[in-house]
């Protein structure tokens, strides 16, 4: 992948299994968002290709929804309007049921009629996740979705996302620069280098959920990634 005359990504070769939770981890500006945008079909790569179930990705598709930071919710629609945004092909009754189901799943009961400006950052993020899930996609792409949230809300949202992922079994590709976050969430962590980004290592996180964040295995895996990136886990 080239951007102007700068190589952004090189030799990225990655297979993701169905229902797998994969985190793409890398330093800021390394091109991990670009990678996710290519995989989602928003940007055409200058070389190489993305295939899903043998089918080449050339454009975005409702079967695979991209979740932005909470700024991606439509400010002119209520929470339920946002969640139902992609359901325009469904008959009204079915749409209503689907919205109610996902309002419930992300815990927004009582806020269905609220506009985004009336919601907190965490709630807006829930709206966006629900909007994505409502169209029943096979894959979710999340681009640093919790980056703008405060640290307490971020922890809660991680737990929520895992709960939803376990209930709905979507494949998830999750871009983050937060090492702890990646080890808490993912089945596999893909560690990228700085630009031009290539895959430094793929780390299997062989800890079942719910994960104990003080277990020796968690700390071992986390510290191995810190070491991989060249950081001593000390301040």
């Amino acid at each position: 992948m080239r951007f102007g005359s700068i190589d952004v990504l090189q030799h990225i070769d990655l297979d993701v299994r169905e229902g797998e939770f994969v985190c793409i981890l890398g330093p800021s500006g390394c091109g991990k968002s670009t990678l996710l945008n290519i995989v989602a079909g928003f940007i055409q790569p200058t070389g190489g290709e993305v295939t899903i179930d043998g089918e080449r990705v050339i454009s975005p598709d409702p079967r695979r929804i991209f979740v932005f930071q909470e700024r991606g919710v439509f400010p002119w629609l209520t929470a339920e309007g946002n969640i139902g945004f992609g359901l325009f092909r469904l008959p009204p009754e079915e749409r209503r049921k689907r919205i109610a189901h996902y309002v419930n799943l992300v815990g927004l009961n009582g806020f269905e009629r609220a506009f985004p400006r009336e919601l907190s950052g965490g709630m807006k993020q829930r709206v966006e996740v629900a909007r994505a899930l409502a169209v029943n996609p096979d894959v979710l792409y999340l681009d640093e979705p919790f980056g703008a949230l405060d640290s307490i809300t971020r922890l809660q949202m991680r737990a929520e996302l895992l709960r939803i992922w376990q209930a709905e079994r979507k494949s998830i590709l999750f871009v983050t620069h937060d090492i702890e976050e990646s080890v808490q969430l993912a089945d596999r962590v893909v560690v990228l280098t700085a630009r031009p980004a290539h895959i430094r290592r793929i780390v299997d996180i062989d800890i079942p959920h719910p994960r104990d964040l003080s277990a020796p295995r968690y700390i071992q895996l986390r510290d191995s990634i810190f070491a991989e990136i060249g950081l001593a886990h000390k301040i």
């Binding site: 989602a40 928003f42 454009s59 975005p60 598709d61 409702p62 695979r64 929804i65 991209f66 932005f68 700024r71 991606g72 439509f74 002119w76 629609l77 945004f85 992609g86 325009f88 169209v135």
Partner: peptide, 25 residues
Amino acid sequence: PMFLQAGRNFGLTAPQLMSRVVVPA
């Protein structure tokens, strides 16, 4: 651009994108 990207992602046609995303935005 995020709004347009989201609209395209949900499979909106160009006229739908205009009436459901661009105009309200």
